[in-house]
Amino acid sequence: MRIVNLTVDIDNPERIPTRFGYGEGLLEAGQKNEEVVALGADITGSVKADLFRDAFPDRFFSLGIAEQNHIGVAAGLALMNKIPFVTNYGVFLAGRGWDEIRTTVCYSNLNVKLGGAHGGISVGPDGATHQALEEISIMRCLPNMTVVVPSDSIETKKATLAAAEMFGPIYIRYGREKVPVITDESTPFKIGEAYCMREGTDVAIIACGAMVYEGLVAAKELEKEGISTMVINNHTIKPIDKATIIEAAKLTGAVVTVEEHQVMGGMGSAVLEVLAQDCPVPVEMIGVMDRFGESGDPETLMKAFGLCSENVAEAVRRVIKRK
């Protein structure tokens, strides 16, 4: 298991939207490789593909509001050895383009990159229609697909650059709102390699996206109660890092999964698939419990849906009792 020491003060973190990291990553990927191209879906500024568009107007194709066509056009570009990034709100990108992603992109194993913006309920006021809560499930079940949910803006940039450098379809989930920065430039990032951001012996929190931060805050709080909590940043949902998950479960004997996504089929389910087969331990799951989102400010929604560090800490207390 790779251990990464925290270099930031989690009580007072800098907050930056992960979409900024995506935008910078896409721009840098375009600077590094002229085969990188991007498609526009009428929300180019919102999903932060505008940095790329402005730098490389000839390699940016505006395609309007037509998600199915986006995926097909990207497939055609990939067949010509381009590296196309399709960026859209995750709920529409993954949902409306699903059969195209399945049959054209994944079955053909084409080098198409999917940037799924506005992941999770933290999108806020726009409400349920625009809050992507199912993409991890419906993307990770596709053969040849890689699924990454980075924890902060710096990691999102790294993931975007890594996506351009690997071959094959990949879905990167990122968000709209400002979230704590918990990694730095030196934090190692490799697709498929989870890492431990806090060591512990009583329980392991396995989280992805901005929920890693909530896990770190919970762990610090639990320390006061004498509970030693490990926190794993499980940024790659597929291919999942079985070795790290099994090691975490063996070392602690109890697991809490944490994600801003439906618990059905999401990151937690992926972890359970590993644990149930290789290292069954008591597990509690934090996520959206089979319901749609609602309008509201992000902070209120995260509380209302039980996605805060307090909820994680409570789940840890529950799971420890079951050991």
Binding site: Q68, G72, V73, A75, G76, L77, L79, M80, T103, S108
Partner: peptide, 25 residues
């Protein structure tokens, strides 16, 4: 074969992508 297909309605989009890339190149 250039690409896998069978789910109807997808080929023209793929052809558009190929044609855009050919023009770009």
């Amino acid at each position: 074969l250039e690409v896998s297909s069978g789910s109807l309605g997808q080929g023209l989009s793929i052809a558009v992508g190929v044609a855009l890339a050919a023009r770009l190149n």
